[in-house]
């Protein structure tokens, strides 16, 4: 992950950061804060409907002091990492295996299409009946949501590897294993990267929804119980945490990873 090009990009980012972009961003954030402050000062009962940013920041101090916020955040991230890595570890080989044989791929394509369109959140009530409100339920929903997008993308990636590469390798006397290792896996690498980003994105939504519905501790649970307990400042704090952590994850980890992979393994000549 911390390859040379990533470091270069990071350096480029910091070089550009102090310029117009950061000023623009800070101005926007200050503007939103002011509008927010204004609205929360004019409405009745702001503590319930729209607490001011100051209150949100205060509640964050409170929750950090009690140790709740770090623990909820850690729980959510742990769930995301465990769930999506198991999902990817199952989905990538599955997609590769299906892609090896055209008949098998034709066979499973419609079924995977069907299951992909059943959203993981819709599966949730079934899993709840099976396993109750447990960590297992949340994990199952995350696995389900992250498995199908990645398996689907990898399958189409393997099928898009030009046949002449496979033929060339075979003509040169490559074994089946060598074809998989040297042709199909590198050829579908860009799809694997794109699919991983996609399914981690889906998994993130599933984590939040799963925690809300199954009542397991985490950021989703925090905003859900915050609403129940009439602590709207905690709800907004949780939402901001969710948004910011996804932006950091997506923009500084997954997207550079995807771009690097496409640059290194992509079949498009530039």
């Amino acid at each position: 992950m911390l390859s040379r090009s990533n470091l270069n990009r990071l350096a480029a980012f910091w070089r550009h950061f102090p310029a117009a972009n950061a000023v623009n961003l800070t101005l926007i954030i200050i503007g939103i804060m002011l509008v927010w402050l204004l609205i929360s000062n004019t409405i009745e009962n702001p503590a319930r409907y729209l607490p001011s940013p100051i209150q949100v920041v205060l509640s964050s101090f409170d929750m950090i002091y009690k140790g709740l916020l770090p623990s909820y955040f850690g729980d959510t991230i742990t769930r995301l990492v465990v769930g999506s890595s198991i999902g990817l570890a199952l989905g990538i080989p599955f997609g590769l295996l299906l892609g090896l044989n055209r008949t098998v791929a034709d066979m499973f394509y419609p079924m995977m299409n069907f299951f992909q369109s059943v959203s993981g959140i819709a599966i949730f009530p079934i899993v709840v009946v099976w396993w109750g409100n447990s960590d297992k339920t949340v994990l199952a929903v995350i696995l389900y949501t992250s498995f199908f997008p990645i398996a689907f993308t990898v399958l189409s990636g393997v099928r898009e590897v030009p046949l002449r590469y496979i033929h060339a390798a075979r003509t040169l006397g490559a074994s089946r294993y060598q074809i998989i290792r040297d042709v199909l896996l590198p050829g579908s690498m860009p799809h694997i990267a794109t699919g991983s980003r996609l399914s981690i994105g889906f998994a993130w939504r599933a984590v939040i929804a799963g925690e809300m519905l199954a009542g397991r501790e985490g950021l989703g649970w925090m905003i859900f119980t915050g609403q129940d307990a009439d602590k709207t400042s905690e709800v907004i704090l949780g939402m901001v945490m969710i948004g910011v952590s996804w932006i950091i994850l997506d923009h500084y980890l997954l997207r550079p990873f995807e771009a690097d992979t496409i640059e290194r393994w992509g079949l498009v000549q530039r």
């Binding site: 959140i121 809300m212 989703g220 905003i223 915050g226």
Partner: peptide, 17 residues
């Protein structure tokens, strides 16, 4: 970008309020 990354689901509690 920020609104998109707060996935729709996370708005539910606030919307209920």
């Amino acid at each position: 970008i920020f609104a998109n990354s707060i996935s729709g689901i996370a708005w539910i509690p606030l919307a209920i309020v």
